[in-house]
Design a protein around this nucleic acid. Structure first.
Length: 424
RNA sequence: GGAGAGAUGGCCGAGUCGGCUGAAGGCGCUCGCCUGCUAAGCGAGUGUGUGGUGAAAGCUGCACCGAGGGUUCGAAUCCCUCUCUCUCCGCCA
């Protein structure tokens, strides 16, 4: 959520930002409601002031044993008017709120202007795609040949876009999770948290998934609960409506959670394999920082996520999302894309974003500076560190051998009892 | 699921028969004094949001005592609904 002051005082700036994003907003409706609100409020506050002073007067008179009936009768009318105006104001503010909640964040000045994903500049490329002397197989074929993935049975149990890992596959997924968590907690200074996987509406609204993107979520029928689409949601909301002490900042959290996404509107895309699932595992990185340091923290966060791929010797690149491709709540986002040999393309495996104060304002996350009056909003950041299913897919594909076996990267072997190779 | 108790400022905790309580008192914190260090002591200050005014310090309006409604000239205080927390019983991984 943007600060309403910014919309009032610097509308042109916001309009340019929205244009760059390719977002259209009904500004006339906004300014109309906003000025209506202002006039109602002025009238209302004048009347409330009158009511307050007269009520004091009544109290005074009663204490003196005087009769206040005349004033009381007169004030009845004022009270009725106040009630009417309050209702009107409430409706007006609700309308404004609805509009503001639907306005995305302002892209940071360093974000390249562009229309869509084709305009995302590459920032760097790390590692070389393996040079196979044979046609590399897709991970789902490798997984099924190895007996570690079973999409047919997963479909029987749940439906399309659900994974079933078996034996060494289940263990490999778990090894990746543990490897990532150990890396981030042990070397990058994050505190591990294990949050609820189901959250309420306020929490979903705090990070920006609601009200605009309800169709992407799984909702529990008959209850106002939602399955989390990412750990970002419960973890960022840990400090919802709290005032942190500045000495606490920055806070680094990492969390493993399953993620649930309806994937509405992605019919026909990535129908095979682990790339696009209704349920997948992810290790997430979340930061709460002072505004002054959030962009330095974003660079560090990105590097923390990249480290996972470097340790696993998986080739990847980093792109900067342009204004037209950036997410709703984000001010700046880097995507890390891992090389997928069977498709011959880089695929997103992590998305690292600085939300600045956009989520903090919605969720009410502030900090207090010693010796200074008032509170300030923190900046929130997060990034995948990494999407586990996609990591496993990339690992199978990049480390496959001509005989159908898969060589386990060194960094992962301790988590698999020293296993060096998956053999069919 | 049944029966009770509670939700007040950064924290703890008062709020009597509704009015002078934005909220006593304590802790914490800030500034000053004092003490040759530390501790203790003394004095003053110390909620949030939003608007007006001012160069600023400040002054000032309105709102906020879990949330939402209601009663009333007036509600932290009375009534209703909801949420959450706690205790006991039952059930259960």
């Amino acid at each position: 959520m943007l600060e309403i002051k910014l919309l009032r005082e610097n509308l042109e700036f916001v309009q340019t930002a929205m244009h760059n994003r390719g977002t259209t907003v009904d500004w006339e409706a906004f300014t109309g409601q906003d000025s209506r609100r202002k006039s109602i409020l002025a009238e209302l506050e004048a009347l409330r002031h009158q009511r307050n002073t007269v009520s004091d007067q009544v109290a005074q008179m009663k204490r003196n044993g005087e009769n206040a009936d005349a004033i009381i009768t007169r004030m009845r009318e004022v009270s009725a008017t106040i009630k009417g105006l309050e209702k009107e104001l409430g409706e007006c503010e609700a309308a404004i709120d609805e509009m503001i909640m639907a306005i995305p964040n302002i892209p940071h000045a360093s974000v390249p202007v562009g229309k869509d994903e084709n305009d995302n500049p590459e920032r760097k490329k790390v590692g070389a795609p393996p040079d196979f002397a044979f046609a590399p197989l897709p991970h789902w074929t490798l997984g099924e040949n190895l007996g570690i993935l079973d999409f047919a049975r997963a479909a029987k149990i749940a439906g399309a876009r659900f994974p079933l890992y078996l034996g060494r596959g289940a263990r490999l997924e778990r090894a990746l999770i543990n490897f990532m968590l150990d890396l981030h907690t042990g070397e990058h200074g994050y505190t591990e948290v294990l949050p609820p996987f189901i959250v309420n509406r306020k929490t979903m609204t705090g990070t920006g998934q609601l009200p605009k993107f309800a169709e992407d979520l799984f909702k529990l029928e008959g209850l106002d609960y939602f399955l989390i689409p990412t750990a970002e949601v419960p973890v960022t909301n840990i400090y919802q409506e709290e005032v942190l002490d500045e000495s606490q900042l920055p806070v680094y959290f990492t969390a493993y959670t399953p993620c649930f996404r309806s994937e509405a509107g992605s019919y026909g895309k990535d129908t095979r394999g682990l790339i696009r699932q209704h349920q997948f595992n992810k290790v997430e990185l979340v930061k709460f920082t002072r505004p002054e340091t959030s962009y330095d923290e974003l660079e560090k966060l990105l590097d923390n996520a990249e480290t996972v791929l470097r340790r696993l010797d998986l080739p990847y690149r980093v792109i900067t999302l342009c204004t037209g491709d950036i997410g709703f709540s984000s001010a700046k986002t880097y995507d890390i894309e891992v090389w997928m040999p069977s498709q011959g393309v880089y695929r997103e495996i992590s998305s690292c974003s600085n939300f600045e104060d956009f989520q903090a304002r919605r969720a009410g996350i502030r900090f207090k500076e010693k010796g200074k009056k008032g509170t300030r909003l923190v900046h929130t950041l997060n990034g995948s560190g990494l999407a586990v299913g996609r990591t496993l897919a990339a690992l199978l594909e990049n480390c496959q051998q001509e005989d159908g076996s898969v060589v386990i990267p060194n960094a992962l072997r301790p988590y698999l009892g020293g296993m060096e190779k998956l053999i069919p």
